[in-house]
Deep mutational scan, measured.
Amino acid sequence: MKVIFLKDVKGKGKKGEIKNVADGYARNFLFKQGLAIEATPANLKELE
C-alpha cells in the first residue's frame, strides 16, 4: 500500500515521502498513530 508519511518514522520514511509499505503495517500502526495517510489521488493532490 502506498502511504504519505506525515512524520519521520525511523527506518521507514521521512515526512512528505511517498512509499510502499505492508498493508497491515500501514493500517495497524502508521494510520492509528497518525504517522501516515493513504496515498489516494485526493491526498496526493493536497500534498502538492
Rank of each mutant, 00 (worst) to 15 (best):
M1H: 07
M1S: 05
M1R: 07
M1P: 04
M1K: 06
K2V: 13
K2F: 14
K2A: 11
K2I: 13
K2N: 11
K2L: 15
V3I: 09
V3H: 00
V3F: 00
I4Q: 03
I4L: 09
I4F: 06
F5N: 00
F5K: 00
F5G: 01
F5Q: 00
F5R: 01
L6V: 08
L6Y: 01
L6G: 01
L6W: 02
L6Q: 03
L6K: 02
L6H: 01
L6I: 10
K7D: 08
K7T: 11
K7S: 10
K7W: 08
K7R: 12
D8G: 04
D8P: 04
D8Y: 08
D8E: 08
D8S: 07
D8F: 05
V9E: 01
V9N: 01
V9R: 01
V9T: 02
V9L: 06
V9S: 02
V9D: 01
V9H: 03
K10Q: 13
K10E: 15
K10S: 10
K10D: 12
K10N: 10
K10Y: 13
G11A: 05
G11S: 06
G11T: 05
G11M: 04
G11L: 04
G11Q: 05
K12L: 15
K12E: 11
K12F: 15
K12T: 12
K12I: 15
K12R: 13
K12P: 01
K12Q: 14
G13W: 12
G13R: 00
G13I: 05
G13L: 02
G13H: 11
G13V: 05
G13M: 03
G13S: 03
G13D: 02
K14L: 13
K14P: 01
K14A: 08
K14F: 11
K14Q: 10
K14E: 07
K15G: 03
K15I: 08
K15H: 06
K15W: 03
K15E: 07
K15Y: 07
K15T: 08
K15N: 04
K15V: 09
G16Y: 08
G16D: 05
G16R: 02
G16T: 02
G16K: 02
G16Q: 02
E17K: 02
E17G: 02
E17S: 05
E17P: 00
I18Y: 03
I18A: 03
I18P: 00
I18S: 03
I18M: 07
I18D: 01
K19H: 11
K19T: 08
K19Q: 08
K19M: 10
K19R: 12
K19S: 07
K19G: 07
N20F: 15
N20P: 07
N20Q: 13
N20K: 10
N20W: 15
N20E: 15
N20V: 15
N20L: 15
N20R: 14
N20H: 14
N20Y: 15
V21A: 03
V21L: 05
V21S: 02
A22H: 11
A22G: 10
A22W: 10
A22Q: 11
D23V: 14
D23K: 13
D23Y: 13
D23N: 10
G24D: 15
G24F: 10
G24N: 14
G24H: 13
G24Y: 14
G24R: 12
Y25K: 06
Y25R: 06
Y25F: 10
Y25A: 06
Y25G: 05
Y25V: 08
Y25I: 07
A26I: 10
A26G: 05
A26K: 03
A26P: 01
R27F: 11
R27E: 11
R27V: 13
R27D: 06
R27I: 15
R27P: 05
N28I: 07
N28E: 15
N28W: 10
F29V: 15
F29L: 10
F29S: 07
F29H: 13
F29M: 09
F29N: 09
L30P: 03
L30A: 00
L30E: 02
L30N: 00
L30H: 01
L30Y: 04
F31V: 09
F31T: 08
F31A: 03
F31P: 04
F31R: 01
F31H: 02
K32T: 13
K32W: 08
K32N: 08
K32Y: 08
K32Q: 12
Q33M: 14
Q33P: 01
Q33D: 07
Q33T: 10
Q33K: 13
Q33Y: 15
G34L: 07
G34M: 08
G34D: 06
G34S: 06
L35V: 05
L35G: 02
L35N: 02
L35E: 03
L35A: 04
L35P: 00
L35T: 03
A36Q: 01
A36D: 00
A36E: 00
A36S: 01
A36F: 00
A36Y: 01
I37D: 02
I37G: 01
I37L: 09
I37K: 08
I37E: 04
I37A: 07
E38G: 03
E38N: 04
E38I: 08
A39T: 02
A39I: 05
A39M: 07
A39P: 02
A39S: 04
A39N: 02
A39H: 06
T40S: 09
T40G: 04
T40A: 04
T40R: 04
T40P: 05
P41L: 12
P41S: 10
P41F: 10
P41G: 08
P41Q: 10
P41R: 09
P41W: 09
P41T: 09
A42W: 05
A42N: 12
A42V: 09
N43I: 12
N43V: 11
N43F: 09
N43T: 12
N43S: 09
N43K: 10
N43Q: 08
N43W: 06
L44I: 13
L44N: 05
L44R: 07
L44M: 11
L44H: 05
L44Q: 06
L44Y: 06
L44T: 08
K45Y: 10
K45E: 12
K45P: 05
K45T: 09
K45D: 08
E46P: 06
E46N: 14
E46T: 12
E46Y: 13
E46V: 12
E46R: 14
E46A: 14
E46Q: 14
E46H: 13
L47D: 05
L47K: 07
L47S: 08
L47Y: 14
L47N: 07
L47T: 08
L47A: 08
L47V: 10
E48S: 13
E48Q: 14
E48N: 12
E48H: 13
E48K: 13
E48D: 11
E48A: 14
